[in-house]
Structures are given as C-alpha cells and as structure tokens.
Nucleic acid binder design. Structure first.
Lengths: 108, 108
DNA sequence: TCCGTTAATCGTATATTTACGATAAACAAT
DNA sequence: ATTGTTTATCGTAAATATACGATTAACGGA
C-alpha cells in the first residue's frame, strides 16, 4: 500500500534560517521595529559621521533617550560609533547591513 | 565667494520611505522581531493552512498566547486566517509579503 | 588648573508587551 | 437538545521597553 503523501505547495518564502543567525536577524528586526530608531537610521543615511547631539536636535526626545536608542542600534549591528574627542561619531554599519540585505534576499 | 559644499558619500541604503508606508513597514519589523512569532511564520511556511491547535502543539506556550500572537501577525499583514467550521486555517499573506520583499529591495 | 562641552550611565516612573487561566462564542456530531 | 471541539477574548500578573532628569566621565580650551 502506498504511503499517504501530503503535497505542500511552495511558499512565497523559505525562512530557511535558525540558531544564532536567526537570533541576530530577529534582534535587527526588533531594533528597527521602533519609530524613533527607524528615524535615527534614516538620519544617518544622510548624515554619516554625525554626533549624538545632531540626532538629539533632530528628534523630539531627550539626550539620554537618544543615547539609549543608539546603544540598541549599536548592539544589534545597525550602526557603529567612534569616539572623537569628547563626541562620538555615528555611522551605519555597512558590513552588517550588507549581511542583513543578502540574508533577507535569501530567505524571503 | 563659493558656498561651502559638504559631500555626502553614498550610503549603503537609501531608506527612502515615509508616512503610512513607513509605519506599515515598522510594524511588520516589530511583529517579526519576536522569537515566538518568527517561529510561527516559519511553521506556516511548511504547514500552510494549519489551524491554531497545530501551532499550539508545536510551541511551548498556551493557546491563548498563540492566539494573541496570531492576531498581531494578522494585523501587521504577515498572515491571513479563514474560518473553517470551528477552526481557523492560517497561511502566509503572500501578497503582503511580496510587498514587504520588494520594498526591502528598494530601500536597502 | 578650572570651566565648558559632549555623551554615557544611573535611578526611576510609566507604558507596553507577553504570558496565563478562565470564559465565551461558534460550530459539529450525536 | 446536549456534548465536545476549537478559537477568540477578557482580566490580570509579570517582564520588558521607553522615557526623563540627574549625575558621571572624558576630553578640549582658556
């Protein structure tokens, strides 16, 4: 007797990912799933190397809060910051974003 | 006298998006930025049309919680559900995911 | 050395998210 | 009609995220 075969129609995406990579991706999603952080990333596209104060001026929230969001974005790989005297210059983490882009292309 | 020109090096992505589209995208990111919901989406890739109970069996959380996550995924456009008798069959919202994919391709 | 500038961190209040059990609603089968 | 099955929703507890003012730390310039 033939075994029962269930045909699974091909899905619109594979989401073929797991483990550490999946965790990393989820954290990147989560970080960008916040309007303020999304705006910060947008701002960095046009203002690479800007300092925390520039971002504070551009947003309606306090410096401490901006700093906190910058930390989240740094920890999840969206941005990097280099200390320059008393300021910190922030820019997109292009390498990690490239990883994100190619991974999305693979699994979606 | 010449105006000062600041050259902005081309960024690794444009993030050229705003308004309602941006809000929609952010909400999709936020929804997928949760490990449980990510697993649900992965499960639906291989089990299209499955019912809530199938997902409950597959995950270590209560039925009420799964239902709540399904609602979030539905509200953000990741999945759709059609009522079939007393059950509800869930599947990926392929149209919306296609929108997501192409948008990501544009702005990243 | 003593200020002024900048950003990170601390402590904390509030809001949101996540989880659960209990219950309700909707339907199928007997 | 009654019973069983399935899922959504309600109420609520606990955890996490978000925001702020105050403080600290690190550096540059007078």
């Amino acid at each position: 007797m033939d075994p029962i075969k269930t045909v699974i129609p091909p899905a619109c995406c594979t989401l073929n990912i797991s483990g550490v990579q999946q965790k990393r991706l989820i954290n990147m999603f989560k970080a960008l799933g916040n309007p303020i952080r999304f705006e910060i990333i947008k701002f960095l596209v046009t203002h690479p190397g800007c300092i925390c104060g520039d971002i504070v001026e551009h947003l309606p929230i306090a410096q401490a809060t901006v700093s906190q969001h910058l930390k989240v974005l740094k920890d999840t790989g969206w941005i990097s910051g280099i200390i320059e005297g008393t300021a910190t210059c922030y820019r997109l983490d292009e390498k990690n974003i490239a990883w994100f882009r190619s991974l999305i292309g693979e699994i979606f």
